[in-house]
């Protein structure tokens, strides 16, 4: 009994530390790799959502752009322009004598 106590008392903290160190380092390494991996995955997912949101915004802007282009083309339709020119601005086609032909260049 007294031998066992003596033996236990004889193992110093330093010995235990150095015996456990490789295992601790191994656990730390695995933990670090795990944290880095998880963080990476979280970032990928976050960026994926951001990309998806931007993609959606891009698609909506493209739709709006198309819609505005269409509206512009509709507003420029000759029948509408003629109607405005004739009815609102009281314009008409110029008399032939009022047309001057300018040389190109």
């Amino acid at each position: 009994m007294s031998v066992a106590i003596e033996g236990r008392r004889g193992v110093s903290f330093g010995v235990i530390f150095f015996e456990l160190l490789p295992a601790a380092l191994l656990v730390l390494m695995f933990a670090t790799v795990g944290i880095v991996h998880v963080t990476g995955r979280v970032l990928v997912v976050k960026v994926g959502y951001e990309l998806s949101r931007l993609d959606q915004t891009g698609a909506e802007l493209m739709r709006e752009h198309d819609r505005l282009k269409l509206e512009l083309a509709t507003l420029r339709s000759p029948s509408r322009l003629e109607s405005i020119a004739r009815q609102k601005l009281l314009m008409g086609p110029p008399a032939p004598s009022a047309i001057f032909h300018v040389k190109e260049g």
Binding site: L90, M91, G92, P93, P94, A95, P96, S97, I99, H101
Partner: peptide, 24 residues
Amino acid sequence: MPYLSVKPSRPPTPEKPGKAPVVA
């Protein structure tokens, strides 16, 4: 013809007096 900038074959005839103007 004016739209395509084609020069008239003949000089433009002066507008007849009394003819309604193109504009109001």
